[in-house]
Design a protein around this nucleic acid. Structure first.
Lengths: 242, 242
DNA sequence: TTCCAACTCCCCAGAAATGGTGAGGCGCCG
DNA sequence: CGGCGCCTCACCATTTCTGGGGAGTTGGAA
């Protein structure tokens, strides 16, 4: 297993990433980086529960298929853990205690995923969330050394991967992220913290009818089917904060 | 104006950042970096819609005060522009066309802010959003050269600044999240993407009565008053992903 | 083995949310 | 000036959610 000797990958790979013009380019850069760092896998994974997945990397396609099919997205401790953090995290520091998580881990290793891993959460506009992961099979000590040396490289690589993915994926960005009006934001925020419509109306000192107009308006702007959906979207797009 | 000669700041500053234990440390690291890079200003700014501001950097306190007081947060094109992007952006590429933006720019320069700037958006869990900015007074060519050389340093520095800010700000508590059962997670997730109770029940192939038990159970575990609240909590605690 | 958490099913009645339609005032921008 | 978005208010009928009961199976943990 190699390393960048503490010196970030200035020459070559990041430039390749920056110049990538197609999805396939990202894929081949991932493979090149895997070989360069001498690890088992290197994966960029755009996380979204609504079915639209996108990723590129060196995992066995069988595993990727299985992951999606089995709904591992919902129980993968890497997802769970990274979603709540800002900084990169070593897989050992995640919570693997639940039954589902253990079964998942077993299955993953059986499909060629390394026992060691390091994942970097990445967030973009509109609540976009992605993961950049590097993993390998080795003992704890070797892995600790590897991550210590390549940590910063990984952050930069993750950054550029996401940047390119955002550029190359046209499907994601359009969604003009229609902003909510101040009143709508207030309404959504109060709903998100558990107030009923009546309580929200009282808090905002407006009639419940007026409040309804806001909620409907927000629902429309967010393309939501009901209030719960609207609040969920507003939250995950970062339009409101609880 | 200096530069890192294309080699990221491996020795010294990032370590200082990682070792910082108090807010004041971040402040002094910012000053040291400003001197090292020979720019006018270097600022980390935590942007939050609910009024709570936090920042550290080398701006004149008078300017910071004025910025807050005048509500520039709402019209600052840097905020507007970065909020919708993922990658770092040169101030020249922002939209300064509105009257308010021009007035703001004029005021900023009058308070010692450089005419050139480079800002990096940073996002964390729960919709956290921050900016890392470096700015200077010089001509376009010199600035282009500077940004080309230090771009990657800036990304890493921004990353570590935010990491430290998240650690040092007690505002975000761990919030011991009682885990949801697999069925509860499925139910919450489907509700979060807009399904009605009836639809969720059908999707999960269970009776609506059973579904209700899950929702109530999840609501109880999450300490939520209603379904919308429960979904919002599950989302912001990272228990479900949409 | 005993116990508990998770999963499944059922009834009823009251509370809350939603859909459709309509209307007036205010402020900003071209 | 006219249009557009925002804020405010109202009624009606229908659908959906919530809170109060109770009950049986399973599989893993103590």
């Amino acid at each position: 297993m190699g390393s960048a000797e503490g010196i970030p990958v200035t020459g070559g790979f990041l430039e390749q990433l920056e110049l990538a013009e197609r999805r396939e380019d990202l894929q081949s850069v991932a493979e090149a980086l895997r070989d360069r760092f001498k690890v088992d896998h290197l994966v960029y994974h755009w996380v979204s529960a609504n079915g639209e997945q996108y990723g590129c990397g060196t995992y066995d396609p069988v595993w990727v298929e299985r992951y999606l099919e089995k709904g591992y997205l919902r129980i993968d401790p890497v997802i769970q853990g990274c979603f709540q953090r800002f900084h990169p995290v070593d897989w050992k520091r995640l919570d693997w205690s639940s039954k589902a998580a253990r079964a998942f881990q077993w299955d993953a290793i059986a499909h060629g995923v390394g026992n060691q891993g390091y994942s970097i959460p990445i967030r973009g506009p509109n609540g976009q969330f992605a993961l950049f992961t590097v993993n390998h099979s080795c003992d704890d000590e070797a892995w600790a050394e590897f991550t210590a040396l390549t940590r910063r490289d990984m952050i930069l690589i993750a950054h550029y991967f996401n940047q390119k993915a955002l550029e190359l994926e046209p499907g994601r960005r359009p969604e003009p992220a229609q902003p909510l009006s101040p009143r709508e934001i207030e309404a959504m925020t109060l709903l998100a913290v558990g107030y009923s419509r009546a309580q929200v109306a009282e808090t905002l000192s407006i009639s419940e009818h007026t409040l309804r107009v806001y909620i409907e308006s927000a629902r429309f702007k967010l393309g939501a089917m009901n209030t719960t959906h609207a609040v969920a979207r507003a939250l995950s797009r970062g339009l409101i904060v609880v």
